[in-house]
């Protein structure tokens, strides 16, 4: 497990805590898990974060913000969500399984709910295998 602190030079910088799980941990200099504190620009959205750590969206699986599910593999519902000071973001590789029955009823963001309504809520993954 790798824990790093990463500071960019922005004026009003919310600090967020990010954990990368699985093979995407190398985007945070870890092997299987990387934990980082990042300072981002004031108006940073989730896409800003993904760009800062150079994580391609095709490698991003489930994404959580403060224990709320914001995105699922193959969906891009969260990209414009604003990041708040002190937020914790957990991002999983696309290889992480999460059987439907173990997520049926968990908290989700409004944008993800809307995206799932469009794509059908029952998929195990939205990525074409």
């Amino acid at each position: 497990m790798r824990t790093i602190s990463h500071s960019l030079q922005y004026k009003f910088m919310p600090t967020i805590n990010v954990t990368l799980y699985g093979d995407i941990a190398h985007y945070g200099s870890g092997k299987h898990i990387a934990i980082m504190d990042l300072d981002l620009p004031e108006d940073a959205v989730i896409d800003t974060l993904l760009q800062e750590i150079s994580l391609p969206s095709t490698e991003r699986g489930y994404l959580f913000v403060n224990a709320v599910l914001y995105d699922a593999p193959g969906l891009y519902a969260s990209r414009n969500e604003l990041l708040q000071e002190g937020a914790h973001i957990g991002i999983f590789s696309i290889r992480h399984m999460w059987p439907y029955q173990y997520r049926d009823g968990i908290r989700m963001s409004d944008s993800l709910k809307a995206a799932m309504e469009e794509s059908g809520p029952m998929q195990n993954t939205y990525r074409k295998t």
Partner: peptide, 8 residues
């Protein structure tokens, strides 16, 4: 980690 991140 997934179930933990989800609060379950």
């Amino acid at each position: 980690n997934i179930i933990n991140e989800a609060g379950g």
